[in-house]
Design a protein around this nucleic acid. Structure first.
Lengths: 186, 186
DNA sequence: TATTAAATAGACCAATCAGTCTATTTGAAA
DNA sequence: TTTCAAATAGACTGATTGGTCTATTTAATA
């Protein structure tokens, strides 16, 4: 059986992904975990500390998954980036609910410095990875701005009305980004 | 003095813009308005109905403001669109907190059909305006996808870590979009 | 001036919130 | 087998939640 603390982190990640921080109550978490209150507060001193742990131990690794570029030196790095953007289309949860980091960022960063710091750390990490990836294979341009724009447009696309969201729609919207990125090839 | 109902709509718009739906309590609203509970519930039967009214009567007109393109027939419509994107840079609140429609969308659409509908309506409106604008002056391409991508990348850019957000950063990130849009000119 | 509905006022409600506290159980080390 | 900290268990707390209810005031109309 999964250790209690790990179970809590998994459940909290999923719940705040869908319902947000303020939309997720401790009682929802306890019910979903099937544990008593004493257990939860044995591992985490408060709701905030718990969610900050979720950011570091669940959200951060999951974001790495999407932006951990295979260092295939044979392939043009622009194509590597484009592959990563295409791969997102197959993650149903991302298509339906958007980027979990972006969602939490919009809800919490404007009202809590600790959340902002933790989230910005992950964001900077992703951006720097893209900058590093692009470095060699790109025409002379502001690679940091390009990386930033790439992230912004992917997350922005994922955030558009869930009602109409689908893999097909993601791909057609994001094709403009692909065209743009292709134009940056050396 | 401003009529009570209008005052409530103004206050609620500002509060949920910053704190979100679940982060804004009725008591916060009453305190900020300086009115008793009886007055508020005289005009709105519930929190949800009140915020749906805010979407229709405050959020919707405000979004129109940003995407109401001057129909200057002398100007290339791509340039009209680019002007609108540049104009956003001067709205401090947008730079700091991001797009209010996008924020509310991410918080509420996945968990409430009524919010999703109301928000999607506004979104479709903006998209259609851009499609209509582009129609004539653009090379042969999927204008709906281009419109969608434009909105997604602007809102995505506005949502990036408030800690580092500034007019300068917005402009450097969005410059990639401008380059792309320029390339669509006939 | 009398009537009446709209608007204001705020006490009150049950439910839920995050969090505390004490008691018990578990399991590994001595 | 004894010891003892880690973990589980859940009753309980004060504050706050969204919402109801009755009473009073206001202002327009008859």
């Amino acid at each position: 059986m999964q250790p209690t603390r790990e179970k809590i982190l998994d459940v909290v990640f999923e719940l705040i992904y869908i319902y947000g921080y303020n939309g997720t109550s401790m009682s929802m978490i306890l019910k979903e975990c099937g544990i008593p209150k004493g257990s939860l507060y044995h591992y985490f001193k408060s709701k905030k500390e718990m969610v900050l742990a979720v950011i570091k131990e669940r959200l951060s690794p999951r974001m790495d998954l999407f932006y951990d570029f295979a260092n295939d030196t044979n392939k043009n790095s622009i194509d590597v980036l484009i592959d990563a953007i295409y791969k997102i289309a197959d993650k149903e949860q991302l298509i339906t609910y958007g980027c979990p980091l972006n969602r939490l960022n919009q809800e919490m960063s404007p009202i809590d410095k600790d959340f902002e710091e933790a989230i910005t750390l992950i964001y900077n990490n992703i951006r720097d990875k893209i900058v590093l990836l692009l470095k060699n294979d790109v025409i002379n341009c502001d690679t940091q701005a390009v990386a930033e724009f790439t992230i912004a447009s992917v997350w922005g696309t994922l955030s558009l009305s869930p009602a109409q969201s689908s893999k097909k729609r993601y791909l057609s919207t994001i094709s403009a980004l692909i065209t743009y990125l292709q134009s940056l090839k050396k």
